[in-house]
Design a protein around this nucleic acid. Sequence first.
DNA 1: ATAGGGTTAG
Length: 791
Amino acid sequence: MSSLLLPRTPPPSPPLSASAAAAPPFLSPRTHIPSHVYKHPAAILLEICTSTKELQQFLPLIMKSGLYNEHLFQTKLVDPLYHTLLKGYAQQSNLDSAMKFFSRMKHDGVSPIVYNYAYLMKACADKFDVRRGKQIHAQLILNGFSDNLYSMTSVMNLYAKCREIHEAYKMFDRMPEKDLVCWNTVIAGFAHNGMPKKSLELVSAMQEEGHIPDLVTVVTILPASANIGNLRVGKSIHAYAVRHGLESYVNVSTALLDMYAKCGLIRTARHIFDSMSSKTVVSWNSMIDGYSQSGDYSEALDLFQKMLDEGLRPSNVTVMGALHACANLCDISRGQFVHKLVIDSGLDSDVSVMNSLISMYCKCKRVDLAAQLFHKLRMKSLVSWNAMILGYAQNGFTIEAISLFCKMQEKNMKLDSFSLVSVITAVAELSVLRQAKWAHGLAVRTCLDKNVFAMTALVDMYAKCGAVHTARKLFDSMGDNRHVTTWNAMIDGYGTHGFGEEAVELFEHMCSKGSVINPNDVTFLCIISACSHSGLVKQGRKYFTMMKEKYGLEPKMDHYGAVVDLLGRAGQLKEAWEFILQMPVEPEINVFGAMLGACKIHKNVDLGEKAADKLFDLEPDDGGYHVLLANIYAIASMWDKVAKVRTLMEKKGIQKTPGCSSVDLKNEVHTFYSGSVKHPQSERIYAYLGELIDRIKEAGYVPDTSSIHDVEEDVQEQLLNTHSEKLAISFGLINSSPGTTIHIRKNLRVCGDCHNATKYISLVTEREIIVRDMHRFHHFKNGVCSCGDYW
DNA sequence: ATAGGGTTAG
């Protein structure tokens, strides 16, 4: 090949007017291209280049122009150009062209050099194409490059990128000598394969062998140290970077700010960000995402806005961060703004961005818009399906969620832990034990029953389907593989079933000395509400104090709400009101909602009115709270006030949410609304219910008509007997064999009369009836309810 | 030949 190279001492450049024939023969057309055929500017550029050097200079430009392939493929080149072009293809990760060109090169009699293999290997690694990488590896060995440091490093990198880190390490181990790049490669390999500790160990090992970590090493291990969440390690890397004068590199400072943000030191991260003299998109993205991950979504969006104001072009990662923030703030208008930006900047061709959009619309409760995007999306990925299924599940569209999941399976798509968790969430919401068992079976069949997320979802699901003991069995089977959320799910499960003692026991176990798991803010929410459901007021208050004093967790609005509920349910209404007045933060809807609910249970008109006043200020259009206040008045026989609330509701156009109960039978879920006669078995249901009411009256049941006014007594009773749960129970009893348990799901809170009637029904029919209402479970058996009439 | 940010979950 040296014969075609320019002489070492180049002759004086010919004057520009010199004829083309005088130029060195670095190109010789293989096929004659007729001059009347259109020539691409890049092709012309190729022809007018007068030296290899010049051509190499223009090459990046030529490669970028797009229409170069055919011309280049038809042209016999000098050796160095083959190498440069191959590098160009490989660096664009244009693997197909690179491979094709490589064959051409060999066909033209040019023998491969080690860099050819290295570049091809890099392209394979970038495409995660381990199959072709192995082919190239084999060729490389045949050509005698197997001991070359560069080629070995590139092969190592291929294996590391393709998640075969052990293969990579084997190569690393076999290498006769190791340079800095090769150490960095293996360190990155472990860092990217979920083994951050191992990668940090290797940094020490390389230092022991006399290598000095450089900026690449630092940039590689900073995310690894963030991953193990050990701030001490991160800080020592920071110190190292300062000592070696590396912190002024943009990559290093970006990696530093990212590490601090991921370790929770968001202000330190911001400090680094602000002091950076130059920033890249990645710096902005890290900072925006840092705010998102620390829960400060408003700041994340402010920074995103600032980035736009400075005229910077957001990348796909930027908009995903912004969408994440919009989703968590339920800020659909800003979400739609980002959506528009996505379309304007052409980022809508990125599946990941589209997935974020789908998820954002779902979180903003606009499942319809999400579904529109999903159905229009041509290149759906597994994540797209998962996001949509979960979106349906979390918005109460359980049937849609499950059927989309089935559709996905019909398409023979593989499913992962995310898909499974999404469908389990749907089943938990559906609250049908039969479906629960199906989902559990699915987890086992797909070998995902060792996955913590899936298992935790199953624990939660069984509890929500009324099978709290099954939930506990699963919980126990997990051993040390539990996360905080697993504990939370179990504690909450006990709580909603009214098993306060069990919840407390589990919580104490979690906080005991030997435990490796610490409670988080959600744990405290679960345990306080568990205490609330079981009337354990003193315990609950103790935990509320403990939360801040022992664990340094600042109570959130939900915790305040839970304490008000705890005190209020137990009848300590004055204490509850005092507690609200003494709150260090402005109370929100949930707090007054809990107060109003307690006033209804304990028939306190005065405080109920106060709570309702605040509620109507904060949320004027909620039907539920208006009905609650009306009921408080009704119980106190203040019928004029009841009428006033009703008029107010009519004026505002607020509708009462209709009561709705569902029951699972064979392969169908049957849903009943109050007073509905639409069910095919309607006549039978009402007839049976009539008989049932007579039977329980004989056993001592007295209808509670205290909340109904304006009508004759027998009409009052008739109204009570069209409540949806009575219809659902009646239907369930008719259609199932004696002795089987009936599971009912109700959208609102169980009313006093239905609660009382169900107790008697369980007695006279000798059936166990499990009702899941808006807030908790009621197990009715032998005339008593597990809630101890305390709900 | 090596390097920083990332979509869905309990």
